[in-house]
Design a protein around this nucleic acid. Structure first.
Lengths: 203, 203
DNA sequence: CCTGTAATTTGAACAATGTTCATTTTATAT
DNA sequence: ATATAAAATGAACATTGTTCAAATTACAGG
């Protein structure tokens, strides 16, 4: 009857992660309390710190899972579309859809900051970097003359632009634009940008 | 010798605001402590709460001042340029410059969140809204057929796109792109977008 | 099945922080 | 000069994340 320790530990970790994810979904990053999470998971307060290094560490793991789902959704969106132009539009729309459908989890990806002096681990930065990569393929088709660096930089720029539009649109306090209008705006924006790319010097 | 109360109160408010702004510049929003601010301003901890409703209220006022300076800088940038295209490029570059030169103050504009249930006062939302307005003029020239709503929405979208690029570029942890490269990327991005606008259906 | 040991779980205690408020100090008017 | 109202003070409180000595539990050997 060995291995029971390991199993319990894993089970607790999962319960904690699920509890924390649930709290984050319903109350957002700012509504996350160590005591609530522990209570939801059915363990003592200290139990959380046996499994995770800190609350920030736990949040990092939640964000990692969210990034995984987001990356999968974006990959799907690009795969189900034909031309580079349509892929870029589909990626932007999927990003918006994911942000709306997973508001608090998505917000936490960008709202969460490590405490002063603590650096974000490389593996997590890499996961963020994958987001940019989805955009790189279609851009490479549109502008085959770009070298790898230029391509990467432009992909990051385009992603950041779309992120900014989604981010400000979903910001609380600001006038809530209806989803359909947002979708249309975003589509038009990407279309305009692609048109611009097609007409620029080194296409 | 009347009016001394009012004067002292104003003086204290200013000292508190300056102290808090200084702390925010050097340590960022997350490094702001009520006790530090009060100590810097030379008053007791409670004094802060005689002048401001809460720390959030104080932060709101700092952000208001920052927005004032940012709006002034953007207005200047647009005024010193000729064509709509060049105005849009100048606005984006000025936005980047301001963000770099006022990193922590600028970050706080978007990082700060009111506690759950407390809503941002209208006058402050309006100040944020002014940011979009700088972009509206040049866009109106480029696309004279837009009605007021369409114009406002497009201005917001373009601003948000530029904001996103600047925001992700200055994000800690991510690879720091040299300022000149950033500036060039941003310029190219706006140029591409304007080109796209010139070639789109309802120009 | 019993027992000793090592790992785990617990929750009281701690430190840091925003906020309040009874008390003290100060400014103004009479 | 004194009374009153305003303002300043800082101790006390509530809410956090985090730690750690003590209690509990799982496992191996007899």
């Amino acid at each position: 009857m060995t291995g029971k320790r390991e199993a319990k530990r894993e089970a607790l970790k999962q319960r904690l992660t699920e509890a924390a994810t649930g709290r984050m979904e319903s109350s957002g990053l700012a509504g996350l309390r160590a005591r609530d999470i522990a209570a939801d998971a059915g363990c003592a307060l200290g139990g959380l710190y046996n499994v995770y290094q800190s609350l920030d560490d736990l949040i990092l793991h939640i964000n990692s899972a969210t990034l995984g789902r987001l990356n999968a959704a974006l990959e799907q969106a690009a795969a189900n579309t034909d031309t580079p132009r349509n892929k870029l539009v589909a990626l932007a729309r999927e990003y918006l859809a994911f942000a709306i459908d997973n508001r608090n989890l998505w917000q936490a990806l960008f709202d969460h900051k490590m405490p002063e002096g603590v650096i974000v681990p490389d593996w997590h930065l890499a996961e963020h970097g994958v987001l940019f990569s989805h955009v790189a393929g279609p851009i490479a088709s549109l502008k085959p003359d770009l070298n790898e660096t230029e391509l990467h930089v432009m992909a990051r720029t385009l992603f950041a632009a779309v992120h900014g539009i989604v981010s400000i649109s979903l910001r609380e306090g600001f006038i809530a634009v209806p989803r359909e209008a947002l979708d249309e705006q975003l589509t038009e924006f990407v279309q305009t940008l692609v048109t611009g790319m097609e007409h620029s010097s080194a296409s």
